[in-house]
Design a protein around this nucleic acid. Structure first.
Lengths: 158, 158
DNA sequence: ATCCTTGCAAAACGTTTGCACCTCA
DNA sequence: TGAGGTGCAAACGTTTTGCAAGGAT
């Protein structure tokens, strides 16, 4: 029996306590997503999937997610956080990126670029515009370009 | 008295042993550069400056530089490597960057972009072409773009 | 002589691993 | 029940720090 805990999806809908095993509720959707990805829907994975399942895309660090899970009364150990994030990444549910040496897991697995807020290190997804980069030098001899990553550093206007 | 060691500038001119305190020799140039940057020309700093002073720009990691220094018979501790790299960066002699979570110090402090070799994690400077990025979305509301970083991932053609 | 720099060792930090227990299908 | 997921604690590699000794001006 899936005695699911009730992680809060960061904000809205804190009012209704999770009911167990109910189909059609957010917890069940999270569970379905795991199964489709070929992962066993364990309690911890369901909870993490639910946490990451906000309406908007998110960028989380292992440490941040661990604290978030603790706040949401989800019992997950640190190593499980690392395991789960890696497993989700391998299953294609997340994408791992690094900005300024900080490891980030992005719930938006599509190809896109990022804004990086200087003051807060916050990462913001760029709308998936088909960007064109002009004047890009060709790859060094013997190499071929397999991808281009672009990071626009931004700071708040005052 | 400046009992300078003789680190080798990665390749060429290994033939002539360093002479001490001689003006006009590579060691002296390194020393002058430190002084101009407002840093005291200690033995360790001179040695590191000399190591980094190849004809081409370089990208080094702290550990890599530490090992290189050891091989070059330069006596520098690990913590001094970290200190010196930070001091050089603050003095504008180096620029710190991170690629894929790996901290890199770049002897090319000018604005430029990079190739990143997938297999080896090697970093290659792009020629400083005035690139034009088309279709770049404007910054999110309340933010302004202060810089754009671009990394072209490459792999060796077979 | 004074300040700054260095080196050592230990601490801090984030991440990974080994292993016993537990859970899910 | 068996495969595999989880939690704990310890290991790990990298970076930082505290402090005493040494060097530079």
């Amino acid at each position: 029996m899936s005695e699911q805990r009730s992680p809060q999806p960061t904000g809205a809908e804190r009012s209704r306590p999770a009911r167990r095993g109910l189909r059609g509720c957010p917890a069940s959707e999270a569970r379905d997503r795991l199964v489709s990805a070929g992962l066993r829907p364990t309690a911890q994975r369901c909870a993490i999937a639910w946490l990451l399942n906000g309406p908007k895309h998110r960028h989380v660090t292992p440490e941040g997610l661990y604290q978030e899970a603790s706040k949401a009364r989800v019992s997950v150990s640190q190593s499980s956080i690392y395991n789960i994030l890696r497993q989700f990444t391998e299953a294609g549910l997340l994408r791992q990126r690094t900005f300024r040496g900080l490891v980030i897991y992005d719930t938006d697995v599509s190809d896109h670029q990022h804004f990086l807020v200087e003051e807060t290190q916050e990462v913001i997804n760029m709308p998936g515009t088909p960007m064109r980069v002009g004047g890009l030098p060709s790859a060094p001899e013997g190499y071929e370009i397999v991808g281009v990553e672009l990071i626009a550093r931004v700071r708040s206007k005052r």
